[in-house]
Amino acid sequence: MSVKNWLKERFPIDYNKFIEINENIFIKEPIPNHMKKWFYCTGATPLILLSLQIVTGILLTFYFVPSPEMAYESVRHITEDVRLGFWIRGLHRWGSSMMIITLLLHMTRVFFTRAYQKPRELNWIIGVVLFLLTLAFSFTGYSLTYNQLSYWATTVGTNMFKQVPFIGHWALVFLRGGEEVTANTLTRFFTIHVGLLPPLILLFVAVHIIILRIHGVSEPEGFEKGHYAFYPHHFYKIIIVTLFAPALGF
């Protein structure tokens, strides 16, 4: 018995239909003509960078040790001793900066082409949440190297939470795991960075894309009406735009 039949008997769904649905979602999606301009393709860039961050981030956790004595030393070990460690860490580090930059580009585009207007307000709000989540990623990730710069950035950053009315002090103690920046802070930030934020951001990205697909992308005035298929033109376009951004950064 072939593997395909074995699978079909144990997971009995209509495979032709399954393939057709996926084709419609991933390959034949109609893209409006104005998306041929690169400025309208910046939304996929942070998504691809996010997957790059996930891969390199998982690889970094193989060597990183979140403790005050070992954090900086293990980062040094990754950059200086581990084979291609400098490369993995460099991708992760610069990828994070590029993610912020491309998100700002995307938000600028959405803002100035009024793509946030009804019925897409909810998607704009979710987009802002995604941006804040990315900032949280950057802040917690920055703290993990635990050198002088990141230690004091953590101190100053968490101090800002103290100014929030009513819950400020509570938020400070929660983030630092005490009154001061200690080993507790480092492990907390590590947990937030690798455990809490990734599922959250993936959830919001999924909702963001689902809402986008339900409404379709907004079509600004002044472009020829018409659509073309997602693959191959738009597919290559977003890859080119994505490669262009890191190429500038790296």
């Binding site: 690889l59 193989f62 581990v82 084979r83 291609l84 460690g85 490369w87 993995i88």
Partner: peptide, 10 residues
């Protein structure tokens, strides 16, 4: 290949 090189110390 690069990932494997990274994961397996020489």
């Amino acid at each position: 290949r690069d990932m494997l090189l990274y994961l397996f110390p020489p």
